[in-house]
Design a protein around this nucleic acid. Sequence first.
DNA 1: GATGAATGAGGTTTCATTCAT
DNA 2: GATGAATGAAACCTCATTCAT
Lengths: 190, 190, 190, 190
Amino acid sequence: MTAARPRPLRADAARNRARLLDIATREFTTRGLAVTTEEIARAAGVGVGTLFRHFPTKEALLEAVMVCRLETVAARTTQLAAESGPADAFFDCFRLVVDQSAGKDEFTRALAAAGMDAHSALRESSAVIKERLTGLLAGAQRAGAVRPDLGLPELIALLTGTTKAVEQLGADPAARERIFEVVLDGLRPR
Amino acid sequence: MTAARPRPLRADAARNRARLLDIATREFTTRGLAVTTEEIARAAGVGVGTLFRHFPTKEALLEAVMVCRLETVAARTTQLAAESGPADAFFDCFRLVVDQSAGKDEFTRALAAAGMDAHSALRESSAVIKERLTGLLAGAQRAGAVRPDLGLPELIALLTGTTKAVEQLGADPAARERIFEVVLDGLRPR
Amino acid sequence: MTAARPRPLRADAARNRARLLDIATREFTTRGLAVTTEEIARAAGVGVGTLFRHFPTKEALLEAVMVCRLETVAARTTQLAAESGPADAFFDCFRLVVDQSAGKDEFTRALAAAGMDAHSALRESSAVIKERLTGLLAGAQRAGAVRPDLGLPELIALLTGTTKAVEQLGADPAARERIFEVVLDGLRPR
Amino acid sequence: MTAARPRPLRADAARNRARLLDIATREFTTRGLAVTTEEIARAAGVGVGTLFRHFPTKEALLEAVMVCRLETVAARTTQLAAESGPADAFFDCFRLVVDQSAGKDEFTRALAAAGMDAHSALRESSAVIKERLTGLLAGAQRAGAVRPDLGLPELIALLTGTTKAVEQLGADPAARERIFEVVLDGLRPR
DNA sequence: GATGAATGAGGTTTCATTCAT
DNA sequence: GATGAATGAAACCTCATTCAT
């Protein structure tokens, strides 16, 4: 009658799960949602059956990938906030979120189509990030590094938009850098 | 002097084609590339066969949708370029493209496709837009209104990204204006 | 209440019908049953609608093609029987039938699959041919030009088999001639 | 020294593969190439997916059927060639091939394909048969038992044609024997 | 637990046939 | 009568998911 608690996995099972998550992240982001479960399993060096034992659904795998990425971002965000001054922390965090968000757009739509606005696990992780972003934004604004009239919604929209811009630009690092310069410059007070 | 017209096309056939293009635009836009041809046909009130008579492939339909959009933007862009001074023309055009694209997620893909290599039919339409944008960008840069190191690919990426940002923000006009301020500000030389 | 009697067609309609039959014969024999009705119509220079006005069904068209060919064979057979001596008439007829039978195999199966052993119109034409063959065979045997133990069924089987052999040989006329030599030689009394 | 074995294949999978090949042979043979993959799968008692797992394409299935047949004939041909003198070996082999093929219309297509250019997998099997037949034919011609002007293509065509003739004749053994007499007689030098 | 063969609903595309123009 | 656009059943093939080994 206790709440479902994930059993501690056997060592090899845990290794498989981690590996699947890793490979799935790579495949989803580089090749889109069209990758088949079979391909992901093969790339991870396991059978499809194993994939489905760990993630009951392709959608569940996708969700796990997103949660994992959000958690990483959340952790690094927290870390960044602690390590640098308010301005640097904010701008570094902006870049970090953009870099970690490739493909998120498509993923979100897929999850939405599957029926929920956002799964509970996703909610939790993104709530942490939002909280962190709120703090960083306020700090940077107090430090005079960011225009004071900008709210969290606009910040998130700008993060999403910048991600989109960077995504479609492809692999030219100089051009990519110029995108960041434009947006980060625009964020500063006039 | 008239454009090459592949065939005269009967009145009802033309109506069906237009309707299919309309519906396909809406469906692709709101539900992504996963919509089935059957659904598009049903929504347009025709049989699948009719869809495939007009567009021999699902991909061809998508392409037609994108071309159609690009042509609209191309026309309005040309108009704007003729009406104002270089700086105003550039900034007005930036807003125009974003406004025309807002609420139409899939259109950003079209813009994205215009930035990458694309199908031959797309080439033509996107070439017109690129030409126009190139001219506007160069004019604005000559006038000292835009940072000189910005290239066309970055401009397109920023248009796409800003569209995305505005789109996700919803209906708050003040917040929306702040997004524009950030990006347009960032575009100015430091 | 009179039996259905094909009305005399208007001049252009008759021309269309004849042309369709011609083209269909060529297309079916050179490209198999997979040719589409659309292609046949286009090759004949008419719309599909016209094809279906003349032949209510693809199968009906196929049947008409076969009847037409059988009638030609029947006519030429009759002619041959009247013009030459018994031996020549028989051997010439053998070649004639083989030459006119390309693709018949596949056609017959298609008609069979469509539900009848052989349509009445086909029955009639092939009955005429059989009758003619019976006469020619008997004549040639009386003249000592063909082994006397051969019956009509074997003759027909040999015609079918030789057709098959010639068909698969392709376009080498010398090899084709050798096939005929083998079979016709084998038909002579030892 | 064992032949290249692509994969060991589980017991039940092998059974399914064999069963599919069997059923497909029967269906193609009796009903032509028009049978649907769905029907073949149903007749074999498996889902379509299974069919396509074993044979990635309908065409691949047909090819496998033909290869299978050709291999059987190749084996028996080799055996016969080793057992008798040149003339007997040749004529026995002719009868053997025809007997093995009788009642199996689609097999004649395989032989036909062997005479024409075919897919790579077919090449191998048909190469063995061709080699064997070439040897038998040359031997019989050297021994003066077969007309010297006959080439391999004509021989194959005659095998195909004789198969067809015998097949269409039905079950009268005397008539069948007469077909053989005609063809084999015709093969002897004049 | 792991594997990969089996499943079958569902997707794209073709084509014989109908019917408005 | 002629035309060709429209129709939709049906074909081939894919892939998320299940289950025997």
